[in-house]
Nucleic acid binder design. Structure first.
Lengths: 166, 166
DNA sequence: ACAAATCATTGACTTTCTCAATATTATCAA
DNA sequence: TTGATAATATTGAGAAAGTCAATGATTTGT
């Protein structure tokens, strides 16, 4: 504990520094960059990802693993290639992620009846349980990330984003 | 050129495959993951970034360099630390990016009159010109990315995103 | 004046991305 | 049918990006 710190006083980074930090953020919000949707989405995803990764950490998952698991649990029976397309992952990354989750016993590769080259991903019983726990944490993360928005605004945001990515 | 291809016919991936690809996208849009804002923002930023990087390629810039240059051109005189905070970049990454842009003669490190440890970033004349060209391309990228949205919707999106990241 | 914190920088290390090559299987046209 | 072409999952290599600890110079707080 820092000596002679008035315990109750403003705890965090010294008031002066803190002020200067926030001052710059404020100052930058008028910049052209801060008005670009690209910049805003990058920041949003960075923040959201970091938080979600934190909350998923004690399940030994990151967002990327969670996403694969989620799709395996979705009942849509994606092939690895389809999954890669949907999650913007290179086929080789899909292999690595699927390997990990399969080794953990959370998902299985099953033969695709329509194409013997391709493999379909499905969750195991344990995978569904893991997903249930993980999904709870990502919901928390989303709740925290969207704190500043009303329920209606959250829906608006979802709709707008869906329009541009689908 | 592929032999005996009916030149005018459906060019792209064979109609069957194409159909199957889009079919899976559609199929996945009902999944729980597709309703998460985190997923949607990740996809949006992925798409936007990729497109912007393409359009910036002939200027030998990527989005990350562009962002630094943009802030150097903003008139806000950010220090490297402030820039890192704003762009979610580790100090060491800032050093690397600034080195590149400084070697290119686009920006300069100037002493901070308030703190001799810190360095302030400003654009050179050439830097402003480069920025003008680059900004044009990122505007194109944004235009294409947001094609599906009306002007009003684009503003809404900007406002909502700004609320959650500032 | 001294101790602690901050800034830019370097370097090491891990994770993520990107790409090319391959074996197996499907598709398409002749 | 057969033969050429393309697609799937996989491996492996290399580049890019992200993370972290240590350092010298400087500032801040006591």
């Amino acid at each position: 504990m820092p000596p002679s710190t008035p315990a109750a006083a403003a705890s965090a980074p010294s008031p002066a520094k803190q002020a200067r930090s926030e001052e710059s953020e404020e100052r930058f919000q008028d910049s052209a960059l801060a008005r670009e949707v690209a910049f805003l989405t990058a920041r949003a995803r960075g923040r959201g990802n970091a938080l979600a990764n934190q909350l998923l950490a004690d399940l030994d998952l990151k967002v990327r693993h969670f996403s694969v698991l989620a799709m395996a649990c979705s009942g849509t029976n994606p092939s690895q290639r389809e999954l890669g397309g949907f999650l913007d992952l290179d086929p080789s990354q899909v292999v690595a992620l699927v390997d990990i989750l399969e080794d953990r016993g959370a998902i299985r590769r099953e033969p695709d009846p329509r194409d013997r080259r391709s493999k379909i991903l499905v969750a195991t019983e344990a995978g569904h349980e893991l997903y249930a726990q993980a999904a709870q944490r990502t919901r928390e993360a989303e709740e925290q990330t969207l704190q500043a928005l009303s329920p209606a605004e959250r829906d608006q945001l979802r709709v707008l984003l869906a329009k541009i990515v689908f």
